[in-house]
Every structure is written in C-alpha cells, then in structure tokens.
Write a protein that binds this DNA or RNA. Structure first.
Length: 564
RNA sequence: GCGCUUGUAGCUCAGUUGGAUAGAGUGUCUGGCUACGAACCAGAAGGUCAGGGGUUCGAAUCCCUUCAAGCGCACCA
C-alpha cells in the first residue's frame, strides 16, 4: 500500500483481465485478444473510484454491444476484498468502488510512513541532472530566472521523491562573448572615472551595477590600471567583478531556498580541452565540414533546417559548440542517465539541434529533456509592470523577493503549468486572504495544528490504535481518497516535469480538509470516533506538510507564524 | 515566409495518455460563527471549449484549415 492508487489500479487491471478471460472460457464472450484498455479515476464520484473501458474498446472484437460485454465481464468478476462493489454503467463502463479497508489502510500507511509518505522508488535510483536558471553572470537576475528557479528546484524535488538520484546544477557562462562585453563595459566605466573622452560601448551593459563594480575596483586598486595594456586591465576588472556577481547570485538563490549541488563553469570546458575534443569527435564521425573559413556541423543530417557553425572564421567556438561539449560532459564524463534543462521559451529553436547533436555524438538526444518555460509578465492590479518603483530599472529577482513573501513567490511560479504565458499579479501575491491559494493551503495546515493542540490540551489521547473503519462518511472518505493520491501524483508530476500538478494537489487536499472540518467534529463525544478523526487529522497534516516541503513552502503551525 | 507555445465561464486556470451531464477558484447574488481557527463552508447564476471541416460507438483532447496572441528563425549567447 505504499502507493494506494497504483496498488488499487493494478488490482482493478488484474480483476478485469481475469474476468474477461473467464468470460471467454465460459463462452459468454467469443475467443479474441483482449484489447488495450485504461483504468482511470472518474470525474464523478458516483461513477466509482476506478472505471475500466474494456467493454467499450472491446465491443468490436467481441462482436457484442459494449453493455453486453460489460455485463459478461462483471458476471465473471471476482472482487478483491479491497473493493466493495463493481457495476456496469453508462454506455458500458465498468465502475469499481473501494471498500472501507482501502480508507483505513491508507491512513495507516500515511501515519506509518510519516515524512516518507509520497516517496516511491519509481525512478530506480537513475541519475538525473536538473540544470536550471544558469543566468548570465554579467548582471542581476530577472523575473524569468525567478520562474525558472522555482520550477527547476521543484522538478528536482519531485524527481527525488519519485526515486531518482538528482543533482541540481547551475551553468556559469564565464567565458565567451558576453564576458568580453562585460570586460569592455567595466573598462569603460573604470576609465570614465579618470577621463572625459571615454565612449561607452553601444552594446555594452548599461546597468548601474557595472559602474558600482568599476568604482569599487578603483577604490581598491586606484588608477594604476588606467595605464596598463587594455587586455590586462579588462582581465583584472573581470577577475574582480565576476566572482562578486556569482557570489551575489548564490546568495539571492539561497534566500530563494535554492541550493545547487554544482556550479559548473563554462571556462573549465575550454581549459581541459573538452570543447576541442568534442569538435574532433564530430569531425571523426563525419558530421562537420569547412566552409568560408569556419567549421560547420551537418545539423541537416539530423532533421534541422540548416547547418550550424561550430568554429567561427576568427577561430573562436560558437555558443552552440560549447554547449554540445557541456552536454557531452554531462552524459559521458559525469555519466548522468538523464538530463533535464529548464530553458526560457525564447530558446526553443535551440532544442532540436541540441538533441540532434547528441544523436550525432552517439549519446542519444532522447536522454535530454528540455522544459521550455514561457516567460512571465508582471502585473499589478491588472496593469503591466515593467520597472521597479524603487530603482526605476527592470525588476530583478531581488526586487521581487523584497516585495512579496517568499512562500507566495515559490508557490505562484509553479502554480501554473510551465507552458502557460502567465501574469504574475503582485497585488494578489501579497494578499493574505482567501483569494490567495498559498494561504488557503497554509491555513488548512495551521487549522489542523490548532485542532491537535486542542486535543492535547483537553484529552491527551493517543490515536495510535484508533479504529479507522469508523471514518466512513463522505467528507471523510473524500478526504482520504485525496490523501491517497499523493504518491502517484508525485510520480506523474515528475514524469511530466510539472510541479503545477502538486500545487493543485495541495489545494485539493486543503479543500477536502476544510469540507471535512465543516461536516465532522473532531472533538466529538464518541471516544472511538474522536480517536479515528484525530488520526485522520494527523495524516492530513502529514500530507500537507510533505507536499509543502516539496515546494519548499512553509507549513505553519499558526497563521501568526506567517507574519513576515 | 517557416517553426515553437498558447486560445475553455466576466477574470485566472484545470480537464489524468479519445470517455459518462466540460470542472475549480475568483468576481456577482444568497445563506451559515454561544462547540475544535469564518484566512472557512453551503447554494444560485455564468459556456458557440477561438471559427470551420474531418476521423469513430464517442472529440475540449487526434488530423486538416482559417483567425488571434507571445516567442524564435546570426560566423549572438
């Protein structure tokens, strides 16, 4: 029962297949191969807990109406004790109803597993890397990084809970063009401190942070670098500013509750020769050619519309070449079974050629999954917000976290599916009322804690040996049914790389609990029922706590705790 | 021009690999606190699933097409 839903579904499948076999053996159905059918959870509870469509998809091969097939199957069905009933309904669905033992065993399982409830070994320990954010280290992080950060971090947590061995990684682009630009920008700001005739590069980084770096550098080293050769000057400035930027990113992300296993530096791929090695590998495999002084990769051999440059005619590698080398490093050098990259949707053109390049290397592009996240629009009370009120510049991750609670930020960025172009409403995120789903879920947790405090104060009862069969009203069963979904929901969310499934699950659990609270008094006079309901509250608190932990959102014991 | 993503209630979004009467939240209207937290619950109203074709027992879901929005199509990263 570690995963109640999956277990019950497998029983349904066994019972159904066996019953069809029996029906054929008894002559009720003609000899035929059992068609593929699905076991699903119906939308309506009156349609049972699980529904099977074998009669609908099998009507043709059995040459009978769906209802007739269903009747024959049900007639030959031996019901497992976990179920209380099976019925034919609608056009020919076979509906299964869970018995009370399912509900009591689910609660027992949750209480026994505790923090481990929801975790499975589905992934078999496969090594998966989740690379996310990987923001350009030449400046502060923006809102897209905020969504990508919450998304990647939650995907990693989900994979971990689903039984994968997960590594979180940040790729630091500390080489190449944008670092040159960074150096030129720093140099211009530095020299401007001493001379009037310095023109700032048109395509340089115009942010104040560049000027701040230059001033700090000047404060520490004076004007000595103004007279040195430009190359040495820029190198010193970059060596001064880049680590500061990286450290700042680490700090902000840490504040955002994201801690990486690895900060991987692009420069190491150049230094240890990986980039050149991978170029040679592609050439040896016959997938490159030279033209116009550049080295080209035959992307068209792998379905792309045009070939791509790997080595520019000036001798430098393209970003694409380095990225191929980076992924070679992930799969071959570091032996990850799977890699998940969280990219902004504006990189979608890069996906097919990256996978193609992995095919070209014989690694297999299907081992790479790219989560293409749509970009975020910031709105306040329906109006688009482009700039920070405080700084007048584009809103950074730091600005955002100063304005809205951390819990709201983490929850909101994964609440919508990553394919949705969504508007982040600053007005809504700070609201501490029922409009805000974060508080709705947290309130449910605090409410349970409050009840359990009350229990401790009044009765000090032990619910360990409670008779869980007493939890048989609809609000109770409906809540337990919701609790039982968690392990399979985590597996599904991990498979889809979609944390939004889990935020929805959290909201659904909270809803089911609030309804239970409304209809069933926990501190009732019947001592047996009381103990059973205490056990249900404890189990619900555990599930909410486990889900919120996956999302890295606080599970408060009182709402006052949330005052931030 | 080609490609990717999206289009479902006034608004924000679900819809579990094609299933039963398309669901939540919010907003509007109405009701519920002298018992465990009303940051909650219950009810009403609200739909041409962007439009049009097709596939089949059955389509919001799959195929074709039109329209609309966002984003890509560099010897940038």
């Amino acid at each position: 029962m570690r995963d109640p839903v999956t277990y019950a579904k497998s029983l349904v499948r066994e019972m159904t297949s066996h019953a069809v076999g029996q029906a054929i053996a008894s002559g009720a159905l003609p000899e035929a191969e059992i068609p593929d059918y699905v076991v699903e959870i119906p939308n309506e509870t009156m349609h049972g807990d699980f529904a099977v469509n074998v009669a609908l998809v099998g009507a043709r091969v059995f040459r009978q109406s769906p209802r007739a097939v269903a009747e024959s199957v049900v007639k030959n069905m031996q019901l497992h004790p976990l179920f209380s009933d099976v019925q034919v309904a609608g056009p020919g669905f076979i509906n299964f109803f869970l018995g009370q033992s399912y509900y009591s065993e689910t609660i027992a399982e949750i209480l026994k597993s505790g923090q481990a409830y929801g975790r499975t070994d589905h992934g078999g320990g496969d090594r998966v890397m989740v690379e996310f954010v990987s923001a350009n280290p030449t400046g502060p992080m923006h809102l897209g990084n905020a969504r990508g950060g919450a998304l990647g971090d939650c995907i990693a947590a989900l994979l971990n809970a689903a039984g994968y061995s997960v590594s979180r990684e940040f790729y630091v682009n500390d080489a190449g063009n944008q670092i040159d630009k960074f150096g030129l920008s720093l140099e211009a700001r530095y020299l401007q401190l001493y001379r009037d005739d310095i023109v700032f590069p048109e395509d340089g980084y115009h942010g104040d942070d560049i000027t701040e770096h230059a001033k700090a550098f000047a404060a520490q080293y004076g004007d000595g670098y103004a007279e040195l050769p430009a190359e040495a000057r820029r190198e010193a400035l970059v060596a001064f500013a880049l680590p500061k930027n990286i450290e700042a990113m680490q700090q902000v992300l840490h504040d955002y509750r994201i801690d990486y296993d690895t900060w991987f530096f692009e420069s190491t791929l150049h230094k240890d020769g990986t980039v050149q090695k991978v170029m040679d590998l592609l050439t040896a495999r016959g997938y490159t050619y030279e033209q116009d002084g550049a080295l080209w990769y035959r992307a068209t051999d792998f379905g792309a519309e045009k070939d791509e440059v790997l080595v520019k005619s000036n001798g430098f590698f393209t970003y694409f070449a380095v990225d191929i080398a980076y992924h070679y490093n992930k799969f071959v050098r570091r032996e990850f079974d799977r890699v998940i990259n969280v990219w902004g949707a504006d990189h979608h053109g890069h996906v097919a050629r990256m996978k193609g390049a992995l095919d070209a290397l014989g690694i297999g592009g299907n081992r790479l999954d790219v989560v293409l996240m749509q970009l975020v629009n910031l709105v306040r009370d329906g109006e688009p917000v482009r700039m920070s009120k405080r700084t007048g510049k584009a809103i950074t991750l730091t600005d955002l976290l100063e304005e809205i609670p951390l819990d709201a930020a983490r929850f909101y960025f994964v609440m919508r599916e990553y394919t949705s172009h969504f508007d982040f409403d600053l007005g809504l995120a700070v609201k501490k009322d029922k409009e805000n789903p974060v508080y709705y879920v947290q309130y449910a947790h605090a409410r349970i804690c409050s009840i359990l405090r009350e229990v401790a104060a009044r009765t000090n009862e032990d619910a360990d040996d409670a008779d869980l069969f007493l939890l048989d009203t609809e609000p109770e069963r409906s809540l337990i049914r919701q609790l039982s979904l968690l392990p399979s929901e985590i597996v599904a969310a991990a498979a889809e790389c979609e944390p939004a499934r889990i935020t929805r699950n959290a909201i659904d659990v909270a809803t089911a609990f609030h309804k239970f609270y409304e209809h069933c008094r926990v501190l009732c006079d019947d001592a047996d029922l009381r103990r059973a309901r205490i056990a249900l509250c404890t189990a619900t608190r555990q599930v909410l706590g486990n889900v919120l932990a996956l999302l890295k959102v606080q599970a408060p014991e009182t709402m006052e705790q949330l005052a931030l």
